[in-house]
Amino acid sequence: MDLNAARFKRAPLGVRLAKDWRLNRLAYIMALPVAAYFITFCYLPMYGVAIAFKKYSPIKGIMGSAWVGLKYFREFTGGYFFWRTIRNTFLLGVFDIVWAFPAAIAFALLVNEMKFARLKKTIQTITYLPYFVSSVVIAGVILAFCAPNGLAGIYFNLLGQTPRSFLGDARYFRSVYVISNIWQYMGFNSIIYLAALAGIDQELYDAAVIDGAGRWRRLLNISLPGIAPTIAILFIMRLGSTLNVGSEKILLIYNAGIYETSDVIATFTYRKGLLENNFGYSTAVGLLNSLVNFVILYAANALSRRVSEVSLW
């Protein structure tokens, strides 16, 4: 009787936890640093969003500063450049997803097909490299390429025009940004796909060869479906950071002449909020940015769950 009751009634949480702890002690210990990281750097600082609603002064602290409500949100959304910064941020984010996201997948598939191990390693190392270089150096390289005596000069000479800088003309900025992003991140982002590809059962390929499938067929019918769940998950996560464009890079390469296409939320806030010590304003904009990102992420996840049954939660 007692035994049966215990079987059907769920044990109290404490008991279940204690039991689980005994069973999976190592897993808990390994998860501890990760949990500590998120608690310390993501959850604890969250009370700081209060700054968005206050006229923050460091000496008075968050609690002591005067409450201004939605003042900074109104200032931002009512500002003269609001729509332009939103448009620029959104477009750069979207173009980056459209071009740079598939680039890493294509690259991983190509590398996966390579037969010479040494060449494969060399190519991978070379393509990872830009990822590990500091943005300042990357920006220096981009500026040099875009200078009239660099690649830009060659391009304009071919068109029969006077050489000028790519970064002196608002029309070229988005291309410069997206292409340099592909160069910077393609190699590194392909690692996770390569790992997924390595996990595909070799027997599938062998069977396909016997059935007479060529390389292209194997790629389309085995490799790609094999990494499809990985692609879906990464795509949802990428959508969640659509509005997080690489603002350090933009800050380092843009100039006032091309604000029309290059001034994004983060750079605008940097000029307005941080250079003028207006912490409340920058926090308000940051909060708004995160909210939009969250909405996009949530929508993408819901859509994906319905369509492909792959989802983050």
Partner: peptide
């Protein structure tokens, strides 16, 4: 901060003839 952004952007584009 907004007005200066407006000025800086226009000044370069006017000088360059954009």
């Amino acid at each position: 901060s907004d007005i200066n952004t407006l000025r800086d952007e226009r000044v370069i584009n006017w000088i360059m003839g954009v």
